[in-house]
């Protein structure tokens, strides 16, 4: 018994001392679950900068940002990547970041870098758009914009995600708020009441909507229109098995909501030099050209080449919608509550 206890104690002590905190030459990146960097690219970071990279995923974007806020001033990592338009205001209000003006900023797509104090740096962007199953629209024309979906021709065709539990679901709700507005003849609330009358289906998350309810591509359901991403059609081609020459799905380019993902150096870091090197590397050609294939987002670097499938099978929406991050933070809970009252109850 005693021997057993000692053994157990020894095991626990070993476990406790085998803790993180990071090596002196390691820069740590706090990010969300969807972040992915290939081993080769991580090795290239070390080869060019001398810093090693440790990635710390911390749940979905909301979880990650909130954990960073709870640890503000004494961060678990040096750089945070993945805070997006819907959570940016919360992160900035919590004074999470120290400013850094990357020399690469001038080479980015204009309009992405919006923070005059350079506390966050844009790394990529993505558009949440309606996708449709091409095979279902051979006789009826596909919808041109979200506004079309209240017409009888599209009855029972749409599946969306619950904005309370899904990030694309929230983005689509924000797109409708941005396009129909909160006041006037026909508000976003009226639009959603009409969608409900037109038999919209709601799922909790993207996986159930796309794989479970959507009929196009790899979807196995019976609804031909879904809220997904502008990058979903090229993904259908890249990950088709057996291979296909043409995407089975397409994007409705009107009424998309643009989300920009940012990175920032966490206040309290003791490795500011490494953190700066990492942000520059995230904006470098190698990582920027890898991102579309690993995370299905579009590079912020203007000169980054898109993979051939992206060029061939998707259209980047010309006039995507967006909302001020501060307005999103201030109204998010109320909007979600009002949406639920209209659509679910």
């Amino acid at each position: 018994m005693k021997r057993f206890s000692i053994l157990l104690l020894a095991t626990l002590t070993t476990l406790l001392t085998a803790c993180g905190g990071g090596e002196p030459d390691t820069v740590r990146l706090l990010t969300h679950d969807s972040f992915l960097i290939t081993e080769e690219t991580a090795a290239a970071f070390t080869a060019t900068t001398g810093w090693r990279l440790e990635v710390l995923p911390a749940g979905d974007t909301g979880s990650m940002v909130n954990q960073a806020i709870l640890a503000a001033g004494n961060p678990v990592a040096d750089v945070l990547f993945g805070v997006d338009t819907t959570f940016l205001s919360r992160a900035l209000d919590a004074d999470l970041f120290i400013p850094y003006e990357s020399p690469v900023l001038g080479s980015l797509i204009p309009g992405l870098a919006t923070d005059p104090d350079h506390r966050v740096t844009p790394i990529d962007y993505g558009d949440v758009c309606l996708n449709y199953d091409k095979a279902a629209f051979t006789t009826t024309p596909p919808p041109q914009s979200p506004a079309d979906l209240t017409a009888p021709a599209y009855r029972g065709m749409l599946v969306v995600e619950d904005p309370a539990t899904s990030s694309p679901g929230l983005a689509f709700l924000l797109a409708t708020i941005a396009s129909f507005g909160e006041a006037g003849e026909y508000t976003w609330q009226d639009y959603w009441a009409d969608l409900r009358a037109n038999d919209v289906r709601v799922t909790s998350g993207w996986e159930e909507a796309y794989y479970g309810a959507f009929s196009g591509g790899s979807g196995e359901g019976d609804r031909p229109i879904v809220v997904s991403y502008a990058s979903s059609p090229p993904a259908e081609v890249i990950y088709a098995d057996p291979p296909v020459g043409e995407a089975p799905t397409a994007v409705v380019t009107q009424g998309c909501f643009r989300q920009v993902e940012y990175a920032g150096i966490l206040r309290g870091t003791s490795r500011e030099a490494g953190a700066r090197a990492l942000i520059d590397f995230l904006l470098g050609e190698r990582f920027q050209e890898e991102m579309p294939l690993t995370m299905f987002v579009f590079p912020a670097l203007a000169s980054a080449d898109l993979p051939a499938e992206f060029v061939a099978h998707t259209m980047i929406p010309a006039a995507p919608l967006t909302l001020d991050p501060a307005a999103i933070e201030a109204n998010r809970e109320r909007w979600i509550e009002e949406w639920a009252a209209i659509v679910l109850r």
């Binding site: 911390a58 996986e207 790899s218 979903s232 259908e236």
Partner: peptide
């Protein structure tokens, strides 16, 4: 927040997180 340790459930989520029959 933990070091990026891929486990089997995490791998399943990674596949399911992107469209495509192969995923």
């Amino acid at each position: 927040a933990r070091p990026d340790t891929l486990t089997m459930p995490v791998a399943i989520f990674r596949f399911l997180g992107q469209p495509g029959t192969l995923n």
